[in-house]
Design a protein around this nucleic acid. Structure first.
Length: 753
DNA sequence: AGTGCAACTCTTTTT
DNA sequence: GAGTTGCACT
């Protein structure tokens, strides 16, 4: 085959991963090893060279951002990649459930309940418990669903052995099914159950998707694994090609049900899996990668990788010891300002911390010194009260069985439809349209008037929302029928469709924004929040405008509205253009940095009790260590660590010790600036016998090596010295022969495998 | 139903 | 120390 242009930019391993076929594939992609490039190129390659229909390719990611980026980059290489299903796991679940809603026993127009909604529903299903308990159970239920455990599963004990928990879980499930809606866990769990119990649907899906790829596989949970298993039909000889990409060293979401065993055991669950490692790192300099390597090698349960930089040695990372956290924020501000004087943009810099609370100090200091910054992930636009109110209206309009949304909007602004009346309406007919219930129940005169007002309002909103045009409907019917053969369909709602044009005649609104605008106004919430804004100097009306704005690209129809609600519910962040384009320092938690990169990174709060946090068992420590690894590998050119002697915590000043992780860094890959606290040493790597054995295997006679200063060479002899040190002689291509001790030089003398 | 004050809790959180 | 929650009071 002739060398294709887009293949020629790949290294050998990347290329192998792209052209691989025939069996399942596990790509172990180290940080910064170009894994997105590999996946997107693979998608293009499958379409162009392997003649795979793009409709038959499914790629799932964990974040919307990742999905968007993947799609954009794939389409850049191959236009037809736009017809692939490239979605987040949860968005795929939603897409699946809208198609097979009947088999899943959910409402066709379901919306997704968030964690708060779950708590409320638990409380309503079981009024005797406190809110605190409900929150606790909500957490357990979500975990149970992540592990694919139903209320009657004996294994539920592994989540909690409390017998009452089963009761709460079961009551919650019943109540949730009555609403017709789903929670986050259901978006994975229900598709799994549908596939498990319906052979015909399973067969049809196996026909639809012949290629399935999963990104960030190390953070998949048990339910996601089981779903993948059924989607791929691996046990039924479906012939579907499965390719998962991940890095076991970057698994940081165990507390949310991520199961690192999924990637460690992948080869057992998918027989004949080939494994390709991507270890060439194009992001960071070698000194930064050495730090990362020293740290992560302290973990036991890992597949093992060794990142090699394609960018040379670079600047040695620096560790700075400071007295107080005020010194820390000042240090960060000053180093950024100094660099700014040299013309380095603010956007080169990222401040990383373990907990959100730590951002505050930086915000005040940066404000003072006029350093522009953005806090990533902290503000959750769609969690704001006023925004949730409107979302509740919209959810109720598409699904009037939605108890939670009903309760939220029924009496806001106050119209005399209080909680007692709401209870009456809801409990009189669980699982029925609450609007119908409103009409069927007899109230006192006051409550009756209030209820009538609410019903009138809701019905007028509903009547103004058209379904898709008949033509569109027919088209989607045909599509469904054709599903097995050739699942051609629109993946995303186009911004402007012909349907929009025709619909103009049917109503006064041009697009979904106008419709939502009308709801904001007519519901009385606009006035309600306008008054609040004036009283408390808030910006709630502004947020409502923002919400209205964000709907402008969705079509004005029931389907468009459902799309919009999915968009909102399945991505809690609202991207505003100013955030991404201007020159600002990024303040961000370590968790949120996954998938990102910055030229200059400062990892702050390197203190015991902060990072790693207290009360961690050994497994948790390994996860914290992976988090540290993720943080380090975000840096491209410069990396700093700061550690304070004292830190204010919950209003008290605490004397802290340097983080244990700092001791795991070798003095060779770290400069220490400032005073070193008493008793602190950068220890050399613990020399275990095992390490020595593998060292002599790795650095064996004949092995090809690369050295930072000397270039490429080959080991011509190896022996254990009189002092018991393992030494090797290397003949370099340049002609020189040098002796090395791999135990101490493994980061500068690299074996090429 | 809305306000005020005491009590409480305080990781990380792609979806 | 700060932000949230819950209860009591009007």
């Amino acid at each position: 085959m002739s060398e294709l242009e887009y293949l020629s930019v790949l290294n050998d391993e990347q290329k192998a991963a792209v052209v691989h076929s025939g069996s399942s594939l596990l790509i172990l992609a180290g940080a910064g090893s170009g894994k997105t490039r590999v996946i997107t190129t693979k998608i293009a390659y499958l379409i162009q060279q392997k003649n795979i229909s793009p409709y038959k390719i499914l790629a799932v990611t964990f974040t919307k951002k990742a999905a968007q980026e993947m799609k954009e980059r794939a389409v850049k290489i191959e236009q037809n990649a736009q017809y692939c299903q490239i979605r987040t796991f949860h968005s795929f679940g939603s897409y699946f459930l809208r198609r097979y809603y009947a088999a899943a026993n959910v409402d066709k127009n379901f919306t997704v309940y968030d964690d708060d909604d779950t708590v409320t529903l638990i409380l309503k299903a079981n009024p005797s418990i406190t809110k605190k308990q409900a929150t606790h159970y909500a957490h357990l239920i979500s975990l149970a669903k992540d592990y694919c455990l139903l209320p009657d599963d004996p294994l539920l004990d592994s989540i909690s052995s409390e017998s009452f928990f089963r009761t709460v879980y079961e009551q919650y499930e019943n109540r949730l099914r009555e609403t017709g809606n789903v929670d986050f866990g259901d978006l994975i769990l229900l598709p799994y159950l549908v596939l498990r119990d319906n052979e015909n649907i399973r067969k049809s899906v196996h026909n639809q998707f012949k290629v399935i790829m999963v990104d960030e596989y190390q953070d998949s949970n048990v339910a996601q694994f089981k779903l993948l298993e059924l989607l791929s039909g691996v046990k039924e000889n479906s012939g579907t090609y499965v390719c998962v990409v991940g890095d076991d060293d970057q698994s940081i979401y165990k507390f949310r049900g991520a199961e690192v065993q999924n990637i460690l055991n992948f080869q057992n669950m998918f027989p004949n899996t080939d494994v390709i490692k991507l270890e060439k790192n194009y992001r960071s300099t070698q000194e930064i990668l050495s730090c990362a390597q020293y740290v992560v090698e302290n973990n036991k349960g890992r597949l093992g990788k060794n990142l090699i930089s394609a960018r040379g040695k670079g600047k040695t990372p620096a560790l700075v010891f400071l007295q107080t956290q005020d010194d820390e924020t000042e240090f960060c501000a000053d180093i950024i300002l100094q660099s700014a004087k040299k013309g380095i943009p603010f956007s080169d810099w990222a401040i990383l911390y373990r907990t959100n609370a730590q951002s505050l100090g930086f915000e005040t200091e940066f404000m003072h010194k006029k350093i522009p910054y953005q806090v990533v992930g902290a503000l959750k636009f769609y969690d704001r009260e006023e925004v949730k109110d409107i979302i509740s209206w919209l959810s109720f309009i598409v699904n009037p069985k939605d108890e939670i949304s009903f309760r939220r909007i029924a009496n806001k602004p106050a119209r005399g439809l209080g909680e007692k009346s709401q209870d009456k309406i809801v409990e009189a007919g669980l699982g029925k349209s609450l609007l119908d219930q409103c009409k069927n129940i007899s109230f006192s005169k006051k409550a009756k008037e209030a209820t009538e007002e609410f019903v009138k309002l809701a019905e007028s909103f509903i009547s103004l929302l058209p379904d898709l045009m008949e033509d569109e409907k027919k088209k989607s019917l045909v599509e469904s029928a054709l599903l097995d053969e050739n699942a051609e369909e629109e993946i995303e709602t186009p911004a402007e469709t012909e349907a929009d044009e025709t619909e103009k005649e049917n109503s006064s609104y041009r697009n979904l924004s106008d419709y939502i605008k009308a709801i904001v106004k007519d519901s009385g919430l606009y006035e309600y929040y306008k008054e609040k804004d004036e009283l408390f100097l808030t910006q709630k009306v502004l947020n409502l405008d923002e919400l209205i704005n964000s709907a402008s690209s969705f079509s004005y129809s029931r389907e468009g509205l459902l799309d919009f609600l999915d968009h909102v519910n399945l991505d809690r962040t609202l991207e505003t253009e100013e955030n991404s384009s201007t020159d600002k320092v990024t303040l961000i938690t370590l968790h949120n940095t996954k998938g990102l990169e910055f030229k200059r990174v400062i990892i702050t709060g390197m203190e015991s009790g902060i990072f790693p946090r207290d009360g961690k068992d050994e497994a948790d420590m390994e996860e914290e260590r992976r988090l540290f690894y993720v943080g380090i590998t975000r840096a491209m050119n410069e990396l700093y660590f700061t550690s304070c002697a004292t830190r204010k915590l919950y209003g008290h000043i605490n004397y802290t010790n340097p983080s244990l992780f700092l001791n795991e860094l070798d003095s060779k890959c770290l400069r220490v600036l400032g005073d070193v606290p008493e008793g602190f040493t950068l220890v050399k790597q613990p020399k275990q016998k095992q390490a020595k054995a593998s060292l002599s295997e790795k650095y064996c006679k004949g092995a090809q090596v690369y050295h930072d200063d000397w270039g490429y060479g080959q080991i011509i002899s190896a022996k254990v010295s009189d002092e018991g040190e393992y030494t090797v002689k290397v003949a370099f291509e340049t002609g020189g022969i040098k002796t090395f001790m791999p135990e101490y030089q493994s980061h500068s003398l690299l074996v090429i495998e």
